[in-house]
Amino acid sequence: MASELIVIFVGAALINNVVLMQFLGICPLLGVSRTLSMAKGMGAAVIFVMAISSMVTWGLQHYVLEPMSIEYMQTVAFILVIATLVQFVEMVMLRYSPALYRALGVYLPLITTNCAIMGVALLNIRDNYGFIETVSHAVGSGLGFILAIILFAGIRERLERADVPAPMRGTPIALVVAALLSMAFMGFAGFGVADMFGL
């Protein structure tokens, strides 16, 4: 059991990194990676919403949608959960960190439509994860997102000073960096996590 959790966790964080290998959550990656502090704030918000929404949607799926045979409501129900959580994060952030709230701007409510969060919630169901596995998968994915966005923010701060050709400035060069970073992450492909922990 423990071995399975570690495999799911490392798999979600590195091998199938939600951003760099599954290409989910690209919009916040591009939108909120201009400075390291914004990236950290975004990362924290995403991992929080991802972990809680995964747990809630898992319960929703198994104790409400499936018993009532209304699985077709999955998308709507999951989005409702995610949107509620994002509202909650917004209120907390406005109260305790107004500066970060303003810095994240429209990207904060847009976590609702962050496909990484919806994606992880759906993957939990698709892969038939139990509750603990779901938590492991969600937290691993969230850390994977934080890793990607922080690496990315560091690189973008450096690119501010680079003589990037005019048509490539901003989003285009950011996409190129994402592609190259994704190539570097190929190194984690096929990692034998189970061997690694002697499981």
């Binding site: 390291l36 922080i150 690496l151 560091g154 690189i155 701060e157 450096r158 190259l180 970073l181 190539m183 570097a184 992450f185 190929m186 190194g187 984690f188 492909a189 096929g190 990692f191 034998g192 996590v193 061997d195 690694m196």
Partner: peptide, 26 residues
Amino acid sequence: MLIRIYGGYPEGVTFAILLMNAAVPL
């Protein structure tokens, strides 16, 4: 070493240096 021992590729130098390149600004 992690890639050489556990990875899907037998050699990890290329990926290791590229990954660390990404971490250089930090």
